[in-house]
Design a protein around this nucleic acid. Sequence first.
DNA 1: CAAGGTGGAGCAG
DNA 2: CTGCTCCACCTTG
Length: 231
Amino acid sequence: MASPALPASTRRLSAPIVTLLPTAPVPPLSRLPEAVGQPPDLTPLSPEAARALGDGLVIRWGWHDSPFGRVLLADSDRGLCWLGFERAEDGRDGLTELAAAWPDARRVSDPQATRPLADRLFDAPTAPPPPLLLKGTAFQIAVWRALMRIPPGAVASYEAVAHAVGNPAALRAVGAAGGRNPVCVLVPCHRAVQKSGVIHRYRYGVPLKQALLAWEQGRCEPERRATRPPP
DNA sequence: CAAGGTGGAGCAG
DNA sequence: CTGCTCCACCTTG
């Protein structure tokens, strides 16, 4: 039986998070594509501005099921300010992280408010993102913007992202900045991989990162399915 | 200032 | 292939 052997360098899913056909690995982009236009509704905030805003901010949050596990969504009238899975690898749960990110905001459990977004979140990887309210340093915001230039179905090396933000040597800091983005999936930090193509680390675990990439590749490169040998 | 982080290159086995 | 060392540099406390 010719099972479609994954490269040994690729870690396998340890648990069936989502059922997907294995896809051929995508070679990392050596350079990010030129900006095709930033999402017009992305609202970057410096930590100082965010602290000033936090007081009056009302955040409505809710847990929802997704093909990749439970997700926590948190919305405000300034945009979506949190999208995270249930638990990060370090053990912290989403609600704790949300509270740490917006300590002065009024946080209200309101699953009905976030349900519409949750329902269409995983409809298609190419769907335009909702308005976002992102708090970060200048460097982090630059990294997040660069990550959003990686098309769905593609991956880029941390080095390429570092180059895109004008500091090719800061590739390790790029990884750290990506890992601190408050809206995973929408800021596609999962599309940054090691230069060799190996998926090495992810805030929510390597299996989830692989599942997200496989899902995007399956949705964005249907021609791959035709060229893949039958199981 | 020191430590840590979603890296990368080089080398040994 | 895996594992280790060293280097890199921005952020955080």
